[in-house]
């Protein structure tokens, strides 16, 4: 279901838990689907002994992809016109993430109604892991 202009107010929020206890297997699924096989995400020996990290960590794009699920659940299928993020902190196996979209503006452009959203995803400690924005077509 798409959003309708008449039901939207600046400051409205939509939040979803997008992953609970992120598994190493899900990170591997993302590597396999996306084609990014960087061993930093899947290879514990490489990541700890060669690269010097405490353990493997998620692709930034996995977090962006999971956050995209929250967005499309909110704005409807095929409604996004823009979606962008900055990766601000790493996401580790075991993390639980919550993604939130906040309505920043409701506007018209070339006769099309649009909503601008601020996007943020935080981990179980409240640390922001990605920060971004999105725009979607709305009805009304």
């Amino acid at each position: 279901m798409a959003l309708n202009k008449s039901n939207l107010t600046v400051g409205d929020e939509h939040s979803e838990q997008i992953v609970d206890n992120l598994t190493r297997t899900q990170i591997i699924q993302y590597a396999g689907a996306s084609g990014d096989y960087n061993p930093l995400h899947t290879d514990e020996i490489f990541t700890t002994k060669v690269a010097g990290y405490p353990t493997v960590f998620a692709h930034g794009m996995l977090t962006m992809g999971m956050t995209g699920k929250m967005l499309t659940n909110y704005v409807g299928d095929g409604r996004l016109t823009k979606y962008g993020v900055r990766f601000v902190a790493q996401v580790w196996p075991g993390d639980s993430l919550t993604a939130t979209a906040t309505v920043e503006a409701i506007r018209e452009e070339d006769g099309v109604s649009l909503v601008d959203l601020a996007v943020t995803t935080v981990n179980q400690d409240g640390t922001e892991v990605i920060k971004g924005s999105a725009t979607a077509r709305i009805d009304g």
């Binding site: 960087n38 930093l40 690269a51 990290y53 692709h59 930034g60 996004l80 962008g84 990766f87």
Partner: peptide
Amino acid sequence: SSGGGGGTGFHAEQHYEYHAP
């Protein structure tokens, strides 16, 4: 680019614009 030399290449930002299905 992948952590072998102490420094590491990372993805800092990603942005998409959707024009057509």
